[in-house]
């Protein structure tokens, strides 16, 4: 039942993008997303696309696995698209029925929006495909460090995330084993109405919960006996390092920001009407 759950999306390889500092990758993703929404014409959007595909190529992950990430959100994308096509206001009306109308501006805007969203999802998937959950956690912890000043428990949060990640495989195993065991006792999880099915899950959930509590207790003892006493006086073995790759990538992202801004200023004349609508929206 759960055999096919491979945790995370990480695609093992040793590419340029894989070896970037996770903190940088997180920041670059945020910068990229901001640029996607700053871009107000197709040229600026094309600049984003160039960087995106360059990143995919440099990451040496199959294009298929990047595109597959869209599959998960395709429903939301299509739904947003339909809403936009039918409800966007514009001057050139092709078709109208009640409150629904299709305008040329609406179509152009929707296409533009679709590209934005596709690129957004693809860029995020590059991050998760090239970064292990562990280094993502490290990156987040490091980026959140300033919050320590307002006594936000950054270290504890990162430790919780790290432990959660390391426990997922054994909890999946455990779930599979309990499911099999109850099936062997004639439990039926696949038929009956929704209420019957929910009730059928009880013999899985209770043992799983108890086992999770037992594990937590043992883990607590193991951590205590390994001298854990919170973040006080703690050193950290792994230091994230900002290397030449990061510098190079940093320059590329900087170039994108500059490019998008320049294209926004100088090219909006080419698609004036789009510019107008995007500003309105």
């Amino acid at each position: 039942m759960l055999n096919d759950v491979t945790f995370g999306q990480y695609y093992p390889a040793n590419s340029f993008v894989h070896r970037l500092d996770p903190r940088f990758k997180l920041l670059a993703l945020i910068a990229f997303i901001v640029m996607l929404f700053v871009a107000n014409n197709f040229y600026a959007l094309a600049a984003c696309a160039v960087l995106l595909f360059a990143a995919i190529a440099a990451a040496r992950v199959p294009l298929g696995s990047v595109l597959r990430s869209i599959k998960g959100v395709i429903f939301i994308l299509v739904f947003t698209g339909i809403l936009n096509v039918f409800f966007h206001s514009g001057k050139t009306v092709y078709w109208q029925w009640g409150i629904f109308k299709v305008t040329s501006e609406g179509i152009i805007f929707t296409v533009f929006l679709m590209f934005r969203l596709f690129f957004l999802v693809m860029a995020s998937s590059i991050l998760t495909l090239t970064t292990t959950p562990v280094s993502l956690t490290d990156g987040i912890e490091s980026l959140l460090k300033p919050l320590k000043l307002i006594r936000f428990p950054v270290h504890e949060l990162a430790l919780i995330m790290s432990i959660a990640l390391s426990f997922i495989p054994s909890l999946i195993d455990e779930t599979n084993r309990i499911i099999s065991a109850q099936k062997a006792r004639g439990a039926d999880f696949e038929s009956g109405n929704i209420f019957k099915r929910i009730k059928a899950v009880v013999p899985i959930l209770i043992p799983l919960l108890i086992s999770a509590l037992r594990r937590a207790e043992e883990l607590g003892d193991a951590m205590d006996s390994r001298c854990y006493s919170g973040s006080k006086n703690r050193t950290k073995y792994k230091k994230l390092r900002f290397g030449w790759r990061d510098l190079l990538a940093f320059l590329l992202v900087g170039a994108l920001i500059a490019g998008v801004v320049l294209l926004n200023i100088y090219c909006y004349n080419i698609f004036p009407q789009i510019y107008a609508y995007i500003r309105i929206s």
Binding site: T132, V134, S162, D221, C227, R234
Partner: peptide
């Protein structure tokens, strides 16, 4: 005094071997 417990799965705090081994020394600074 170090203790190794029964279930190896329940003693791991990290999902990379070296990070897990580093946990103890990190704790004592």
């Amino acid at each position: 005094v170090g203790v190794v417990f029964q279930n190896p799965d329940n003693q791991m705090v990290a999902s990379i071997v070296e990070d897990d081994v580093a946990f103890g020394p990190e704790n004592i600074g």
